[in-house]
Design a protein around this nucleic acid. Sequence first.
DNA 1: CCGCTACTGAAACAGTCGTTTCAGTAGGTG
DNA 2: CACCTACTGAAACGACTGTTTCAGTAGCGG
Lengths: 189, 189
Amino acid sequence: MSERPTTTSPRRAELLEAAYAYALAHGLADLSLRPLAAAVGSSPRVLIFLFGSKDGLVRALLERARGDELTLLDRAGQLSGSEPIGLAPAVERVWAWLAAEEHRPLLRLWVEAYARSLVEPDGAWAGFARATVDDWLTVLAACQPDDERDSPEGLIRRTLALTVLRGALLDLLATGDTDRVSAAVRAAC
Amino acid sequence: MSERPTTTSPRRAELLEAAYAYALAHGLADLSLRPLAAAVGSSPRVLIFLFGSKDGLVRALLERARGDELTLLDRAGQLSGSEPIGLAPAVERVWAWLAAEEHRPLLRLWVEAYARSLVEPDGAWAGFARATVDDWLTVLAACQPDDERDSPEGLIRRTLALTVLRGALLDLLATGDTDRVSAAVRAAC
DNA sequence: CCGCTACTGAAACAGTCGTTTCAGTAGGTG
DNA sequence: CACCTACTGAAACGACTGTTTCAGTAGCGG
């Protein structure tokens, strides 16, 4: 009976932003409506009304996080806008962004969503891991010179580049040892 | 009052093994006692009695998973037992194990625990991510020639090796594209 | 048989969960 | 004014959660 304006509405956008900040701080794993609603100055009733269900809210949060990720990727893509800058410089630039202290909550959230979508491939998390792999590979491809991009070795090289970035991110989030991990990324280039 | 044989007991070991199989199939994120107990032929009462609490059970499961991981690492370490085999061959051997289809549930569980211990560094998951980074770096160090191992570049090289393995694992779990990812790992060596 | 340890079943406890029901209020438009 | 849309508060629903209480049973050494 309580229909859903699943579409965008001003209040919905406002609450989504607040909920996103809350998720960055507390994680998505044991997110629950009542504490979240209290933190963002709302009520479970309203969250359900605006997002349809808790799953709808989580989906919206994941899309929101993916939005942040895509703006990063756009910035990396810009650098290859006029002329491809090559894989190694692209990796170093993206890594500088990933290693920045202030992006760590977002990246933790990202790892959490990635892992969850592997374990539980249905529901709100469906396809998140797969989607980001494709997003990144596409952007890395845009950084490669034209002839390299379309060769089989080009695919393998950008897969390796993505692998280094992802693995380094995991190490960094666990140890916080920026120097050691950044040196490894630099060595890979 | 119903205090803890937190120590090992025959029944406890038996149920732990069954619960481990269940966790491999269903994940740890929304593990709950009643369905688990039903699946392993026991009751919540007994699980609490034998493991002290749900947190105790989860801790035991994580230790159990880490046990599986350590036997893999031991096997990689064996190959460097008499004479260090070098980083690149070690990576290729370990990757062959990681890429095997039958190890995927264990690796999914591993990623789940890793991510969770990043988001929620207290409680049962504490230190899991950090511990495995150290485990792996130690074993990779044992594969390096003596002079390389103790140099600063040696630390960076094995960090990079670990990075490649971890990143490749994430890609493989999301896409299942063994050929592409294995080619990238081979290219890194 | 006694007493001890190890384990177990059934039921209840208090709490949280997502969601629903029913009731509104505020603001703009006709 | 009436009317519609957008939003909201309070309270309840039933289903679950981890945990506890109380009551056992089975086996075994003495």
